[in-house]
Amino acid sequence: MRQGQGHSPSARARSARPVLIGLAALGLALFVLPLLGLVIRALTEASGLALLEPAVRSALLLSLLVSTAATALAFVLGFPLAWVLARLDFPGRRLVRAAVTLPMVLPPVVAGVALLSVFGRRGVLGPALSAMGIELAFTPAAAVLAATFVAAPFLIVTLEAALEAMDPRLEQAAATLGASEWRILWTVTLPTIRPAVLAGLALSWARALGEFGATITFAGNVSGRTQTLPLAVYETLQSDFEGALQLSVVLLVVSLSVLVGLRGHFLGAPAEAQR
């Protein structure tokens, strides 16, 4: 009999807590220690002039451009997809949702190979695109497409959840008040799900900024043309650990400023979504 083993009721009730708290502390250390190590070593060892090098600046600029363009493209195509998934009932909806979210679980390098096999020179659409004078693979446009492919699902999933949680009577009220469907979209739907839009854009932008596998496979690693910052970090690491440290800190700072800049909306998003 368990009760005969001498534990008091309160001790039995509490016994899970120290274990959970201990494991949580271990988990926190796993996330914080590497970042702390990165910052400490960069501060103590690196001379801190990485940003002045033209190659670094062009990689940073390209990264910012590519992730911003990818996020814009993700929104233009992703909002309609989220809307269709949330509002229309049609056969195959689950398949569409699976197809749209697959890139979240797909290894990025596989995404790169897949993009290459369609848009590459010898890909399915390659000859047709060549005939029109369009070469996608190994261009900055390919970097944008690769980043969109891996990042858009984060935006779509966030937007679909918000559209489904939205009170349908708001759009109905706007319709009875005479607003056209476009007007309802701009003046009621998007403003109502604004926190989710901002959170989704931030998630998508951050994912695009860090994109590596699909980019190097589909867009290549041409300095000044398709070499984004993560690619530059990887290449620098082969010969120059100190340089890689500096570049990593640059990426860390950019990512952190997005998080801090959107803190109100981003961290507030889960609570607001429950309203």
């Binding site: 009170d167 009577r169 109905q172 009220a173 009875t176 008040l177 003046t187 009621v188 109502t192 604004r194």
Partner: peptide
């Protein structure tokens, strides 16, 4: 038509 919805359904923004 003018419609008052249950719970008002005012535009929160």
């Amino acid at each position: 038509v003018g419609m008052c919805f249950q719970g008002q359904a005012l535009f929160g923004h």
